[in-house]
Amino acid sequence: MTPILSLWTQPEPAKKSAPKCLSQRVLVVEDELLLGEIAAETLTDAGYEVFTAASAEEAEVMLRDMSVDLLFTDVDLGGQNGFELAQTALSLQPLLSIVFTSGRSRICYGMCRPLKVPFLAKPYRLADLVETVERALRATTTQ
Results as ranks from 00 to 15, higher is better:
M62F: 09
C21D: 08
E37W: 11
C112A: 14
S67C: 02
A46R: 11
G103W: 00
P11I: 06
R125H: 14
E49T: 09
Y109M: 15
V61G: 06
L33F: 11
P94E: 09
A56H: 08
A18Q: 08
F72W: 10
R113T: 07
L43T: 03
S55P: 06
V75P: 00
I107K: 13
L71F: 05
Q24L: 09
Q87K: 14
P94M: 01
S6M: 12
I98G: 02
P114R: 15
A18W: 06
I107E: 15
V28I: 05
L96K: 08
A18M: 08
A14T: 08
L77Y: 04
V61M: 07
D45N: 07
A121G: 08
L115P: 01
Q80M: 10
V28Q: 07
I4L: 15
L7N: 13
S6L: 13
E37K: 13
T9A: 07
P94A: 03
R64G: 05
M62H: 08
K122C: 08
V29E: 06
A56Y: 08
A59K: 13
V50M: 04
V99T: 06
S17H: 13
V28S: 04
S102Y: 10
A14H: 07
E37A: 09
A14F: 05
K16H: 08
C108L: 09
G110E: 12
V117Y: 07
C112G: 00
E41Y: 11
Q80Y: 01
C21Q: 10
F100M: 10
M62D: 04
T73K: 13
S105I: 05
G36C: 00
F119I: 11
D69V: 04
G47V: 01
K15D: 04
K122F: 04
L27S: 02
F83G: 07
S91W: 01
L92A: 02
L120C: 02
K16W: 00
Y109K: 15
A89G: 03
K20R: 14
E30C: 02
P11D: 13
A18S: 11
T73N: 01
W8A: 15
A18V: 13
L120H: 09
E12P: 06
L85K: 12
R106P: 03
P94Y: 06
Q93V: 01
Y48W: 09
G79M: 03
R25Q: 10
V68C: 04
M62S: 05
D76H: 12
T52D: 00
D45A: 09
Q10I: 12
K15Q: 15
G78S: 03
L129A: 01
T88V: 09
G78N: 07
R25A: 08
C108M: 15
F100P: 02
Q10D: 05
T9V: 06
D69S: 03
G82A: 02
P114Q: 12
S97A: 13
E32I: 12
T42N: 02
E41S: 10
R106K: 15
N81L: 05
C112Q: 09
E84G: 06
A127D: 15
P123Y: 07
E41F: 12
F100L: 10
W8R: 14
I107T: 15
L70H: 06
